[in-house]
Write a protein that binds this DNA or RNA. Structure first.
Lengths: 229, 229
DNA sequence: GTCTATAGAGAGATAGAC
DNA sequence: GTCTATCTCTCTATAGAC
């Protein structure tokens, strides 16, 4: 019985512990996204998590440790958006799928995107290893495959590394600078599914057209001339 | 004589005053760029300006006032990058020139770009007026002109507002996320002229190709076949 | 494991000598 | 106009009651 009690207690503790840690990380992601590491306060995070401030330190020790836990989750999320691009894959659908996956991430995890952005703007003091390691490797490998596609005439010549960077820039801007796009488009406080869909299609069109993977549609007067003649 | 002395003193004072204010704003731009409004400290700004902390408050009153002065300068800089796009202008060279101007700004004023980025990530509490006012107007007007170009068959059909947003995203990312690009490209601590030139050309090619303003180069095997046949 | 109360460091801001 | 010394408030972190 003593063992049983201990077991049950341990299980419960573990579950509560995990739930609370996850709850704190989610709250921290939001606060760090808005104010950056130095601008965020543990009091704000505690309020967002609806827990006393001391619990934050009980679970994570220091603000620094909590921030690293948040970054770790985000890096895992970023890595999960990587695609296993292979030599035999179809260039057009591979690029389109990757752009769609990145846009899903911007739409569903905007706070994560902003924490990442904040960290990069600061000079990435806590992420240099990741940037120079896993991320660089992924880019090298995938750009290499795309370079082969180009060599084999399956895609028009472009700088493939730069292409990847620009895909990141265009997809992440919809999360990071959302307020700018809502202000200009006049779509209230947040971007809706319609805006994301249109943006996704615009990025896919731009990338595929410029890589010669889909035709650039004819100019309008040409079309109209065909219709009228 | 008394008038002369007063005049000279006033001139000197005015000059020193302006010089110091400008010196503090430049230092503040750097510190705010790195840490955002809440993360930046007046002590850091004073250190960067090589002035005692009290001088910051003597010239600007509060940290908030100083931040607004920095934002005002940046908004003026952004507005100066606007181009008077006119109906009769050539679409290809107009877009290329605008992209070049934006890239010059990223290269020469990366801190300004990052302060702007920080403010947007935070939800732009101090810039909503600008976003919903002057910026929105500029976009409406310029997108309208481009829509005319499309109607007149001078450009392939695209969503022109989204095109502007994506040009901003691609050009500003080279300043805001510089550390990511240097880490992946392995170009040391900073991007050089070579990287900026290549990036500029890549963005121009992508935009002009996707708008049907320059041809997409043939795929390599086609070229090679022509050469070998 | 939870939370109040508080210590100690660091922030913004200012008074007042120069 | 310049700068040191200092006030006050807020922040991180922890001790200790429950």
């Amino acid at each position: 019985m003593g063992t049983d009690n201990k077991k049950t207690a341990a299980d419960t503790t573990g579950r509560i512990r995990l739930e609370n840690k996850e709850r704190i990380i989610k709250a921290a992601e939001k606060i760090f996204a808005k104010n950056g590491f130095r601008g965020a306060t543990t009091a704000d995070i505690a309020a967002a998590a609806e827990l006393p401030k001391a619990n934050i330190h009980y679970y994570f020790g220091t603000k620094e440790d909590l921030y690293r836990a948040v970054l770790d989750e985000i890096v895992a999320l970023w890595v999960s958006s990587f695609r296993e691009i292979k030599h035999d894959d179809d260039p057009a659908s591979t690029l389109a799928d990757y752009i769609r996956a990145k846009m899903e991430l911007s739409k569903n995890r905007p706070h994560a995107s902003r924490v990442f952005a904040n960290e990069l703007i600061r000079g990435a003091p806590r992420m240099k290893d990741y940037l120079e390691g896993a991320l660089k490797e992924w880019v090298e490998e995938k750009a290499g495959i795309m370079d082969q596609w180009i060599e084999e005439g399956r895609m028009a010549p472009v700088n493939t590394r730069t292409l990847i960077f620009h895909i990141w820039a265009m997809t992440q801007t919809w999360a990071d600078f959302e307020v700018q796009w809502t202000a200009i488009l006049g779509t209230g406080d947040h971007l809706g599914d319609a805006e994301y869909e249109e943006a996704t299609n615009a990025i896919i069109s731009m990338v595929l057209r410029s890589c010669g993977l889909i035709p650039v549609p004819p100019r309008m007067t040409e079309t109209e001339m065909k219709l009228t003649v």
